[in-house]
Amino acid sequence: MKKMILILMMSLSLVASLKKGDKEVEFKLPGLYNSSTVVDSQSLKGKVVLLNMWASWCSGCQHEMPLFVKLQKSYNKKDFEIVLVNIDTHKENGIDFLESVDPDKVLTALYDQTKYLPKTYKVPGMPTSLLIDKDGTIVDVYIGSFDEESIKKLQKEIELLTKSSK
């Protein structure tokens, strides 16, 4: 019986997905606007990061983008950075949309052509955002888009994380 339970648990672990407390997946992705600029996940260590996986065809992603612009403007990028990972097949669609909501290019936009991050994280919905602490640990997972209310809650969490020494 013990063996059976062990086998069952091992099998379930094979289909496990994204959860709090996990370490973030290492990545190296080109910029959405300029592919010669490559951003490494290592370079984001030491600051609180909101990693958002989005696409221009996803209505929820379009909805939350202006909120992200507003949020990023209220923080110094040294403390908190919103990193957008676009997964459009044609990156021009992503650029067109992002330029319309973020003309000043406040948000850090990366392009994941192979959909490596959503595949690795096995995201259960679009958009999905991960709040990552200074250590590179996933503190919170947000499936679906943010609204005015939820972004306030997120802001409180960011405040706590940016103040903590860890």
């Binding site: 996986m53 696409a55 065809w57 996803c58 209505s59 997964i87 459009d88 097949t89 959909k115 959503p118 595949k119 096995k122 995201v123 259960p124 919905g125 679009m126 999905t128």
Partner: peptide
């Protein structure tokens, strides 16, 4: 079909 593969479904 995974959520990130629904580009064509969104058309």
């Amino acid at each position: 079909v995974m959520p990130y593969e629904k580009e064509y479904f969104a058309q």
